[in-house]
Nucleic acid binder design. Structure first.
Length: 723
DNA sequence: CGAAAGGCTCTTTTT
DNA sequence: GAGCCTTTCG
């Protein structure tokens, strides 16, 4: 029992033991936040004697939830199973599935992701006779999502706005709501908002949940939006045992309506809240922490925190300039290779982080070229692949035939002669009769008479009817088949394998389909209804970032956003340029710029031992070649913390970064070179040695390359061989 | 109706 | 550079 508290520092202990009433834990990076959360829950269970059934722990991502689960499992064992532990969205989906009917939610509801939302918005625009070019669906989606995150209905919205665009948005929003309701679907924002609505309209439902959850715990509180905060307040409303953990400096989701002010408001809403600060960092070296502090302290809207560490001083921050993004990638792979060969680190200790997913491609190419294994977190997302989405759409449709987005998506996949013309006609025809497309199909299939009242050609009627019959048949079978059986029947019925194999990358697509089938297998033991529903829910709410827990010892490629909450001994942040980080879309807005800075801070603080900040002088962006200035954030790192290669200053190559290295290398046999010798470099190709000079444990060699000009390297560092 | 080609735009981060 | 949309042709 005591061991739960034994491994904690005083602040952590305080946070764990403060179990009565509201608690706000402000946790700096690497301060043992997860440890505090898990130990707190364990403490509640093992010491205080709270049943796991009565504890709610909410996280922001599935990954965080799983991490917590496994750590708790180590502390309290099997009992973890009885906790309510999950993401906001997953927990809300469960609540709505069970109790949503009280506010008219179809328990068979499907969940619309962003893509589906866009489709529905396009449909809304079409119905309103608005031009999608003039009113970009993406922009509308973002505005509407934002409104929903603040619990603004379309009518609230109109009260708020007067501009023409807002008026249009309101009309689209209204229409969108009609359509999504008719489809028995909920979007991500609805999952949260509808629960809040449910709790407001049905106090007895709320009371049931309130009474159950004696303790409520929320992670990454700085990333919650208004709805989420409201939801937490509702749930904790009875016992007020609510513990939130967060760090305002790591708030990087305001674009998704996250509102840091929730942290400030927490202290207002719960004036008796106990505030605990976790300021000791266990992760990073002193220099890394100082560099990170330098970056973040330039933010004006911020509470100063006193982060400190007892860790060693460590290596200086490496600031590297390369010429192009290819060279940047090569530098990274090469450097990782060096570190690994020196035995300093394992590949799995290294991560390469970037602002935008697009940057991953060049990196991948370099890793492939060097034969260095890597794992890419969420590249082309599995669940966003066409073939996967199509099958999922079919299954959703079987579960909920009202789902019009799915219907329209697959009605002609594989092609069955139902083109745009016919579809428009179908929509119009359905609309005229005030029924959904699905119902219209049914009517069509039922009416044997081929009267001229129908606006379709005989061929089209046949195609539509054929589709309706097949779908009907599948729906009829869903009671009797488990998810995999249904999956197989579906694939068979629509001839999916043949269809896929006929297209480019057909094999890969088919393999993806089989992979999806593998996921379905996890649900085979549930009852048919439950299985399908659970399968679809997990597909909707689980991103593939989460599935990436692999133990394999390889380098991680990851966006800065996804990296939050992770840590690696060695971190490379690439694209340290104005326009990339900070992103050019955010550069002119001081508030957004501060968020970019926090993002940079998050990246740096992921590192334990070494941090490399890499940039390219010239880079291809949107097709064109651009020259970017160094990231302004680099200027906020005190120069005495930095070791840099400086192409500008000395004309030297990639490697001089290590000249200021403080600690000696693990001794290795360094090759010696003489002037005039022909050598080969991993990046620059062949060249001739100009000079060679011993320097302490290392040596410096200057090489004139055929293509790349004269470069200077440290021998231990660069990949140079005699030819 | 459907496949192919050409032209357009807009590029962030994700549950 | 990619994805989306439109146009064109069979």
């Amino acid at each position: 029992m005591k061991d739960i508290l034994a491994e904690l520092n005083p602040a952590q202990k305080e946070a764990v033991e403060a179990i009565n009433g509201p608690v706000l834990i402000l946790a700096g990076p690497g301060s043992g936040k997860t440890r505090v959360i898990t130990h707190r829950v364990a403490y509640l269970m093992r010491v205080v004697g709270i049943k796991p059934h009565n504890i709610l722990a909410v996280t922001f991502t599935n990954k965080a939830a799983r991490e917590m689960e496994s750590r708790l499992n180590a502390l309290v064992g099997e009992q973890v199973k009885n906790l309510t532990l999950g993401t906001f969205h997953a927990i809300c989906a469960r609540i709505l599935r069970r109790d949503g009917q009280a506010i008219g939610i179809d328990p068979k509801f499907v969940i619309y992701d962003d893509d589906d939302q866009i489709s529905l918005l396009k449909k809304s625009l079409q119905q309103l006779g608005l031009d999608p070019k003039q009113y970009a669906p993406r922009a509308l989606q973002s505005v509407i999502s934002n409104a929903k995150s603040q619990m603004l209905t379309p009518s609230d919205f109109s009260r708020k706005g007067r501009s023409y665009f807002e008026e249009i948005t309101q009309r689209v929003y209204e229409r969108y709501e009609k359509l999504i309701t008719a489809s028995s679907a909920l979007d991500f924002d609805d999952l949260l908002g509808k629960v809040v609505e449910l709790f407001r309209k049905s106090p007895e439902t709320l009371l049931r949940y309130q009474s159950r959850y004696l303790h409520v715990q929320v992670d990454e509180f700085q990333d919650t939006n208004l709805v989420q905060y409201e939801l937490i307040k509702q749930l904790a409303g009875k016992y007020r045992n609510i513990c939130v953990v967060g760090d305002p400096d790591q708030s990087i989701y305001s674009w998704r309506s996250a509102d840091v002010r929730n942290i400030l408001n927490f202290e207002k809403d719960f004036p008796d809240a106990k505030v605990v600060l976790l300021e000791q960092n266990y992760r990073s070296t002193k220099l890394i922490l100082e560099a990170a502090s330098g970056v973040i302290s330039a933010n004006r809207q911020r509470k100063e925190k006193g982060l400190w560490t007892e860790n060693e001083v460590g290596f200086p921050v490496s600031v590297i300039e390369t010429y192009t993004e290819q060279e940047e990638a090569q530098y990274v792979v090469n450097e990782i290779d060096n570190l690994v060969r020196r035995g300093e680190v394992k590949p799995g200790d290294c991560a390469v982080m970037y602002r935008t997913n697009a940057q991953s491609r060049v990196l991948e190419e370099a890793f492939i070229r060097y034969g260095t294994p890597y794992k890419l977190v969420a590249g082309t997302r599995f669940y966003e692949r066409r073939e996967v989405k199509d099958v999922v759409a079919y299954l959703r449709l079987i579960q909920n035939p009202l789902d019009s987005v799915s219907l329209l998506r697959i009605i002609n996949v594989p092609q069955r002669g139902i083109g745009q013309q016919s579809l428009d006609e179908l929509s119009r025809w359905a609309g005229a009769q005030g029924v959904t497309e699905y119902r219209a199909l049914q009517l069509l299939a039922e009416s044997k008479d081929t009267s001229a009242a129908l606006p379709f050609t005989a061929r089209t009627v046949k195609a539509l009817t054929g589709f309706a019959v097949m779908l009907e048949n599948l729906i009829g079978k869903k009671q009797d088949l488990n998810t995999v059986e249904l999956f197989d029947l579906l694939i068979e019925n629509i001839g999916y394998k043949k269809y896929l194999e006929a297209m480019p990358d057909g094999e890969e697509r088919w393999e993806n389909t089989l992979e999806l089938r593998g996921v379905a297998q996890d649900y085979r033991d549930l009852s048919p209804q439950e299985g399908l529903s659970a399968f679809l829910e997990s597909v909707a709410l689980v991103s593939d970032v989460d599935s990436l827990v692999e133990k394999s010892d390889t380098v991680t490629l990851i966006t800065l956003h996804q990296a939050k909450g992770l840590e690696f001994p060695v971190v490379f942040i690439v694209g340290m340029e104005d326009g990339i980080l900070p992103h050019f879309k955010s550069i002119d807005d001081p508030t957004q710029l501060e968020e970019e800075r926090r993002l940079c801070y998050v990246g740096i603080t992921r590192a334990g031992k070494r941090i490399y900040l890499v940039r390219a002088f010239r880079r291809h962006l949107m097709g064109a070649s651009t020259v970017n200035r160094p990231s302004r954030f680099l200027r906020d790192i005190p120069s005495q913390l930095i070791a840099k290669n400086s192409t500008e200053e000395s004309g030297a190559g990639l490697a001089t970064a290590m000249e200021k290295r403080q600690e000696p290398l693990i001794p290795v046999d360094l090759p010696e070179f003489k002037a005039g010798e022909h050598v080969k470099h991993g990046v620059f190709g062949e060249g001739v040695v100009v000079s060679y000079q011993k320097k302490g444990h290392d040596a410096e060699v200057t090489v004139a390359f055929e293509g790349a000009g004269v470069k200077r390297f440290l021998v231990s560092f660069a990949k140079i061989e005699r030819v």
